[in-house]
Design a protein around this nucleic acid. Structure first.
Lengths: 340, 340
DNA sequence: CGGCTTGTGACAACCGGTTGCCATTCTTTG
DNA sequence: CAAAGAATGGCAACCGGTTGTCACAAGCCG
């Protein structure tokens, strides 16, 4: 079974194998591969050829250990099964892969403790993290950001780079839409108390309502799951409103189901507006009017900002804040207010 | 700013810091933490106390480099945005976290090349991989499995441990259901040609159809996305069938939308059965009859099998094959065949 | 009380790269 | 043509742990 190939041991090749094959020192191989200019072009080519021949793949662990950089980025989301995060995750993954980074995806289960401990652990095994919809306090987040490069999504803490999705402004579009349909009694179905997004939407909505001279009441909080939609629907009906703006599409879709069960027609008896335009918002019954934004792009932007932070050399003034536009997508869950 | 605390340098503590603090050798610290029995209980306690005091967190890179095990497991899915994988991912994540492993999630973009190159890369940075719905050939998969511990999901290759979701058997349930509703002209809307699941379902369906003396025709292939549902719906209508069994829920939901646009009523004019019972199957219009299975559990089982492979010591005969049951969930997208 | 087993901890090599520093060689310039 | 400078490659320390080997000490036996 002898071949002219250099001993093809079962163990994956290392720079030492390449070095031996080329008759140079391991350090030279290392340089040829990572700092090409530091090495004579002819030696480099020999080394590259040998590397290719051996199917050399650098050991990322060893690289990380000695260089201090891991080539991985953590992405923390509160709930992997929430469709809202699908596109976000895909966006981060695409951008990270394009830059040669690995994505470490973690579901923090909507728990601040899991989130904090994950961050602590990632501190060693990732170069930076993207945190979506953090459940941590501002202080904790700021402290964590001081320890490792970080970009938040949908969480506005001064001093921490962030990608914000401008749903607050979209809420006034939603409000105008409902007002133009004749609604005067409107409810906001709040999300979890720990969600800053929910607060920001409510604040924006209150202000807009005040400006327009209508009253919007706040109901909830509700968990961001379709199951919570039942309670939300019942609360809405009981409160006597004719239209609801829900914290997100999951709640809105859950409301749709419950209202249907109870024989309350949407939009004839009650109009519903969701938020996020998640998978399913277009084919639920009736299709949901909702506030849409380029989520995948938000993920990509977050990663870009993080990478800019990691490699400051690449120029391009590091933006510390990016706001994604949002617009109202009207489908069939909103209609004229019922004649009372 | 002097304190009685040992110098709290900014650099994270290492075993050497602990060793210095306790006046022992670094190797003793290492043993105390990983092989507790190997060290005197009193020394161990001192070391543990020091570790706690310093907030010591082992460096996973270094651990991986020297021990050869990375504590990470790769999870490859063809498309992160396909809701089918949400629960799967959550299942693997839960089980991995419970065992102290980290999940490396990668979207292979339904590409065999991305899948292969990812595997190659993961070979260094993961202890094993879980591959869902692989696009690779049997040979490639077998070769890859020889190089690193692997469990497949929904891919049956002899010699490679697998978790199979028994949708084939469910297809005959679906067929019986449709037959009992009076349907005689039925179509199977096939998935991508590279999908073994699709083939297995079709085979099972053909056999069942033959046994029952009905004819089922195959249409497609269709990409597993809602957008493909339009083409599928048109093909179904054109072929004159009164009922369809779709490769998965995405196609089925897409068909529902298209049929509605074309004014074809479901289930009065056409019955539709999906597969997977994904998020959205219960609230689309009409709610989809579909074949459901415990997907999250499948993810957990796959991880358990992989971990058993990684740590053979833990006893428990390593099963190399696990089949998840599937059952038909009837909702509103199936009804009596139209009187022709 | 000597010899042997067992328990315990230290030393040092090693995992696979990276990088600071130095020696050598080639090139350039006065 | 000599001296200064740049290019190039090697040596060795280091990243933070793990683990084989060995020395020393205590406990046990007859």
């Amino acid at each position: 079974m002898a071949t002219t190939q250099p001993a093809a041991v079962d163990r994956p090749p290392t720079i030492h194998d390449i070095a031996a094959l080329c008759g140079v020192a391991a350090s030279t191989v290392s340089r040829a591969l990572s700092t090409p200019d530091r090495v004579n072009i002819r030696t480099r080519q020999r080394i590259e050829a040998a590397a290719a021949q051996l199917h050399y793949i650098p050991n990322s662990q060893a690289k990380a250990l000695s260089s201090g950089r891991t080539g991985a980025v953590g992405v923390l989301v509160p709930d992997i099964t929430n469709p809202f995060y699908f596109d976000l995750i895909r966006g981060t993954q695409l951008q990270l892969k394009a830059a040669g980074y690995t994505q470490l995806l973690v579901d923090t289960e909507e728990s601040d403790e899991v989130e904090a401990s994950t961050m602590e652990q990632l501190r060693k095994s990732a170069d930076g993290i993207v945190v979506a919809a953090s459940r941590l306090t501002d202080e904790a987040l700021l402290a964590a950001a001081a320890k490792m490069p970080m970009v938040t999504i949908n969480r506005d803490v001064p001093g921490v780079p962030a990608v914000l999705i401008d749903t607050p402004s979209a809420t006034s579009q939603a409000l105008d839409h409902l007002i133009s349909l004749g609604h005067t009694r409107i409810a906001y179905m709040a999300g979890p108390p720990t969600s800053q997004s929910s607060e920001r939407r409510w604040t924006a909505l209150s202000v807009a309502a005040e400006e327009r001279g209508v009253e919007v009441r706040r109901l909830g909080p509700f968990a961001p799951k379709t199951q919570s939609g039942a309670a939300a629907a019942d609360a809405a009906v009981h409160s006597g409103v004719t239209a609801c703006i829900a914290f997100n599409d999951l709640i809105a879709i859950g409301m749709l189901q419950r209202l249907r069960e109870r024989g309350i027609r949407v939009p004839e008896d009650m109009s519903i507006v969701g938020c996020d335009d998640i998978f399913g918002a277009d084919f639920c019954n009736p299709p949901l009017s909702t506030m849409a934004s380029p989520i995948e792009q938000a993920g990509r932007v977050a990663v870009s900002m993080l990478l800019a932070q990691l490699n400051p050399l690449a120029g391009g003034g590091t933006r510390s804040r990016s706001v994604m536009p949002t617009h109202l997508t009207v489908r069939a869950s909103t209609g004229p207010a019922p004649l009372s």
